[in-house]
């Protein structure tokens, strides 16, 4: 009897209308590990992590977080579940009517009885953890793409989550900024010991931040393993993807 996985997906199916996205995904994420899910654009990676936090519900199959089935939670149960999570969105998804510090302190303001000055103090500290100073009073529209991502990251970690979800953390950034984000993800993991799940198609990033990598293709997990195991994996689909070849079993509609 091994340790209970932090997040477990069992035979998860999901379709949007006629479009079948997930066809029986099985994946267990251990407490404290950094799992990276790789896969091409439009293969349902975002759909997959949105199931973990209850933003989407499976058509069939079950999702467990800390052994609790997400589907069975009522409204208040779902609120409690989500407090365990922090999520970084692909486009950062900052609230553009609020200042940077109000964005970072949003969860604190909603869920803790704190004075605004204290919330701002915590927000400034979290911003410092992601390498940002003197931006707390700016509006999100005044920030660059890399800064927005970092503010989004500060917001995700503001409530000291047990689990952090990263939706394409390096997509749309230049290689140097992408590496800054990679380093931040590693640093945050060391500092707050959170379980993390990232989805990406950036293999450099995947190798750098992952303890284990899972490859999603055609609605199913094709392979799971450490970066070295994935490199040495003889599954032709995995080999084609990690080496970025246009020719192979993965068909691309041009």
């Amino acid at each position: 009897m091994g340790e209970e996985p932090k997040i477990k997906l069992v035979d998860v199916h999901k379709a949007f209308g006629a479009k079948v996205v997930l066809k029986g995904v099985n994946l267990a994420i251990r407490s404290g590990e950094s799992m990276v899910v790789i896969g091409g654009s439009g293969t349902g990676k975002s759909v997959l992590i949105k199931h973990m936090i209850g933003l989407l519900r499976p058509d069939r199959g079950r999702v467990f977080v800390d052994g609790v089935e997400v589907e069975e939670l009522d409204e208040s149960g779902l609120v409690e579940l989500r407090k365990k999570f922090g999520m970084l969105f692909q486009g950062a998804a900052l609230f553009d009517s609020l200042t940077v510090w109000e964005n970072v302190g949003f969860g604190l303001k909603r869920h803790m009885k704190l004075r605004d000055a204290d919330i701002k103090g915590i927000a400034v500290e979290k911003l410092r953890m992601v390498g940002l100073r003197n931006v707390e009073d700016l509006m999100p529209s005044a920030l660059s793409g890399g800064m927005r991502k970092r503010v989004g990251l500060a917001r995700a970690i503001a409530m000291d989550p047990e689990i952090i979800l990263y939706d394409e953390p390096t997509t749309g950034l230049d290689p140097i900024m992408a590496d800054v984000i990679n380093d931040l993800i590693i640093k945050l993991r060391e500092e707050i010991h959170a379980t993390s799940v990232a989805i990406t198609h950036d293999m450099v990033s995947a190798y750098k931040i992952a303890d284990r990598i899972a490859m999603l293709y055609q609605g199913e997990i094709q392979a799971v393993g450490t970066p070295d195991e994935i490199r040495g994996c003889d599954n032709p689909i995995v080999q084609q993807f990690i080496h970025g070849r246009a020719v192979g079993p993965i068909r691309v509609d041009v």
Binding site: E80, A93, R155, L165
Partner: peptide
């Protein structure tokens, strides 16, 4: 995705 972000912030 700001509405999804609200949900992830348990709001």
């Amino acid at each position: 995705e700001q509405i999804d972000a609200l949900l992830t912030l348990a709001t």
